[in-house]
Amino acid sequence: MSKYLLDKFLFTVDRDPALVERYREDPVATVDWWEREVANKLLNATVTEDSTWLEFSEKERTALREHDHVTLFQMGAHPFLTLTLFIAMFERDHGPLEYQKAYGAVMAHLTLPYPDITT
């Protein structure tokens, strides 16, 4: 389990307009490409100084491939990152605030304490 790597995925996709579209349209291929090409990139390096050890668990990969924000929340992915990216991808398909409300409503069964988001 790597909450850090889940967060890194959400963070790097959310800040790249082209990647937001790619993840919306083809999540399976985007997650596979990202894990292969980006997961180990040290973000602060301008030349290749890759890390060597970062990979998703099968459950994490599946949650990302399925756009499953409820499971991401339950795994302790940072809820701000997930929400921001998912609004960017899906708000456009709904009326005002409809998506945000539905996003919360499908999590209504979750109670405190929420999963720890500490990385």
């Binding site: 924000h69 929340f73 940072h78 809820p79 701000f80 997930t82 929400l83 605030l97 945000q100 409300k101 996003y103 919360g104 409503a105 999590m107 209504a108 069964h109 979750l110 929420y114």
Partner: peptide
């Protein structure tokens, strides 16, 4: 404030 959880946007 709740962001990305069940109590958001109430």
């Amino acid at each position: 404030l709740e962001l990305g959880g069940p109590r958001q946007f109430g």
